[in-house]
């Protein structure tokens, strides 16, 4: 099994480079583009001197490489910094939050907030169970919908199953997730009252967002599955299997499905991973679902650097790990892929 070890070491080393690169990219981007998070944090009423002092305190006036090295040094110890805006109790502490009368109290609140800002890890950890549940349900719905249809279409090229898959795929991929979310909220929750949504008060709140995710992911899997099965059917071992006396069902189940699972695995590593992450962000935001995605979108809109960075590292690491696992699994199915 020296191969597995070599493979893991090589790929993990590559993965670390990628995650570092991602972090640096986001890190630089956040600091190069105009707009001062301290200004947003403290609100427009604060004097420039206070803003500067606060920025100094947060280390935002040092050079970018300096900040980056400091950040990485802490990050490897598990310290990803603290959110600028989210308090320990989970309540957002932005200046924008207090629009509408409480302007005078802002300064006091900010001073308190300084003491109790939530750690990035905590922000992520609070949301992660919800996000994992949503992603898991989304994937489950996707597979339930896409796998039978994709297999049927692949085995029956140019027949009605294929056309149905083509049609469903084309329509589903044309439904923007945020719009679909709105329509589902309107029809299922508001009008029909069949399923709850908006926020999270129980398991039922996961279903609609998960459906939105599934509609976004299913076309990719349907297409990929039907294509790779159709391709596998062209292989020599299929026509060869017939004359060798293998039953058709056995050819399909043991050989065609096995071989077409490799492109599917790759799809999962590259496309599905990315789409799932992106989809989670948007659906969580629209459904006001309390996961990591919602926190991230809010963090980005508020320029909450530490949270964005933390989530970016997390997302990149998940994708990198998913890809390594997928490639390793592929090499076990097809030994030629030993890369």
């Amino acid at each position: 099994m020296a191969f597995v070890l070599t493979f893991l070491i090589r790929r993990l080393a590559q993965g670390v480079v990628i995650v570092l690169l991602v972090t640096f990219l986001i890190f630089t981007l956040l600091r190069v583009i105009p707009g001062d998070p301290v200004r947003i944090m403290l609100g427009p009423a604060t004097t420039q001197a206070v803003v500067e002092a606060r920025a100094q305190e947060l280390g935002l006036r040092d050079s970018i490489p300096e900040q980056f090295v400091r950040y990485i040094a802490k990050a490897v110890q598990g310290d990803f910094g603290e959110s600028y805006f989210i308090g320990e109790t989970g309540i957002a502490l932005t200046a924008q939050n207090v629009v509408g009368g409480k302007g005078q109290d802002t300064a006091t609140e900010q001073r308190e907030a300084k003491m109790t800002r939530a750690g990035v890890l905590k922000v992520i950890a609070d949301g992660l169970p919800y996000t994992l549940m949503l992603a898991g349900m989304g994937l489950l719905f996707t597979l339930l919908m896409a796998v039978p249809l994709g297999i049927a279409a692949g085995l029956n090229q140019e027949k009605w199953q294929d056309r149905l898959a083509f049609f469903i795929g084309s329509v589903f991929i044309s439904l923007p997730n945020f719009w679909l979310a709105l329509v589902l909220i309107l029809l299922i929750t508001a009008r029909a009252g069949l399923l709850p949504s908006i926020g999270y008060k129980g398991f039922g709140y996961v279903i609609l967002p998960a459906i939105v995710l599934a509609v976004e992911l299913a076309p990719i899997i349907i297409r990929g599955l039907s294509m790779s099965i159709a391709q596998a059917l062209q292989a020599g071992y299929v026509s060869g299997g017939i004359v060798r006396g293998l039953p058709w069902r056995q050819i399909i189940v043991r050989h065609v499905l096995r071989n077409s699972s490799i492109p599917m695995l790759n799809l999962f590593g590259v496309q599905i991973g990315g789409l799932l992450l992106g989809g989670v962000f948007v659906t969580e935001f629209v459904f006001d679902y309390p996961g990591v995605g919602r926190s991230t979108v809010q963090a980005v809109l508020q320029r909450d650097f530490p949270v964005i960075q933390g989530v970016a590292i997390l997302a990149a690491s998940i994708l990198v790990l998913a890809n390594i696992m997928v490639d390793l699994a592929s090499t076990f199915i097809d030994r030629r892929l030993k890369f």
Binding site: P34, G278, V282, T296, V300, V311, A316, V320
Partner: peptide, 18 residues
Amino acid sequence: DAQLSIPVIVLAITILSV
């Protein structure tokens, strides 16, 4: 590789929001 590891939306909104 790196860029495909960042969800498009995070990248996009990070830039566009400011």
